[in-house]
């Protein structure tokens, strides 16, 4: 490979790749650049590549640290937004949903992979069918159900429909467990260890790779979820960041939106994912490729 000369084709391919990377990354820079600008000053200089009249104001506005006067002076709408609370809501919602669905999928996958019981293949077949059937039809009835259970505007109502069951997770973990040698477990059984001790002492540690993969992908999905929380929450005390941002965007004045504030809010909403990416970047990239091959 290394000995091959740069042909025109390869140069073209590199240029293509550079354009793709640039178009992909530029909006992230633009968020930062706008979020550090004075909203009034932006009007006069919309295409400056650097922040216009550098200020932390937009972040103060969306984190509820600016007074109404300060906000208006920098071109904010005067409305204050306290993203801190929504940030906590998002953390609770995404963490609890992800933890529960991975735990319950793990338990089920173990039952399918290692235990012998009547009806196993039948139940597994049913779960597998759920993987094929799109969930679109469940949205409205699930809203009605959650409402009838009195769980609107509660974390329980947000979490339950997606925190108990994931056909994909169960399938993914079962396939992995089937590939593991059962010898250690059999030996432990003969030594008289209980099933639960084997599950958490032997199987779970050996499955830690796929568990991490599913947890990361699940957390990303839940963190970015918008439609379901939109249906079942109207109360700020439980709404996640995605909703707060959408409301902030939709309620900003048509004539002159607070773009700097909006970009600061956007950055706050995206930041945890970007941090996750910095820590688990390689793993995320490999996970996506891996799950696609399944």
């Amino acid at each position: 490979m290394r000995t091959r000369r740069l042909s025109p084709g390869r140069v073209l391919a590199w240029i293509y790749l550079a354009v793709i990377v640039l178009v992909t990354v530029f909006p992230f820079y633009w968020i930062l650049r706008t979020a550090l600008s004075d909203n009034y000053a932006l009007l006069g200089n919309p295409s400056s590549l650097l922040p216009v009249d550098f200020t932390w104001g937009p972040f103060k506005r969306v984190l509820g640290l600016a007074t109404a006067e300060e906000s208006l002076a920098e071109g904010g709408s005067g409305a204050t937004l306290d993203l801190g609370r929504y940030l906590v809501n998002s953390i609770v919602y995404a963490t609890a949903s992800t933890f529960l669905v991975v735990l319950f999928s793990l338990l089920a996958a173990y039952a399918f992979a290692r235990l012998h019981w009547r009806g196993r293949d039948f139940v597994f077949g049913l779960f597998l069918a759920a993987l094929m059937v799109p969930g679109i039809l469940t949205l409205l009835p699930n809203f009605v159900l959650v409402r009838d259970l009195g769980l609107l505007n509660t974390f329980a109502g947000m979490i339950l429909p997606y925190g108990l069951f994931s056909a994909f997770n169960i399938f993914f973990l079962r396939q992995f467990m089937l590939g593991l040698s059962a010898e250690t477990e059999e030996a432990a059984l003969i030594d008289g260890a209980g099933r639960m001790r084997i599950l958490f002492g032997i199987t779970v540690p050996m499955t830690s790779g796929p568990i991490t993969t599913l947890s990361i992908l699940g957390f990303i999905g839940m963190w970015n979820d918008y439609f379901w929380p939109l249906l079942v929450t109207t109360d700020e005390s439980v709404q996640p960041l995605t909703l707060a941002l959408a409301v902030f965007k939709q309620s900003s004045p048509q004539s002159q939106p607070d773009w700097a504030g909006l970009m600061a809010a956007t950055l706050v909403a995206a930041l945890p994912m970007l941090l996750l990416f910095m820590v688990f970047g390689r793993r995320i990239v490999n996970s996506i490729g891996f799950t696609g091959l399944k």
Binding site: T24, V25, P27, F28, W30, I31, I220, W223, N224, D225, Y226, T242, L245, A246, K249, L262, M263, A265, T266, A269, A270, M273, L274, L276, F277, I284, V285, I288
Partner: peptide, 14 residues
């Protein structure tokens, strides 16, 4: 894959 990590709401706002 950076855009995959952010929500549709964030992408739409930007």
């Amino acid at each position: 894959i950076l855009p995959f990590l952010i929500s549709g709401v964030v992408a739409a706002t930007v």
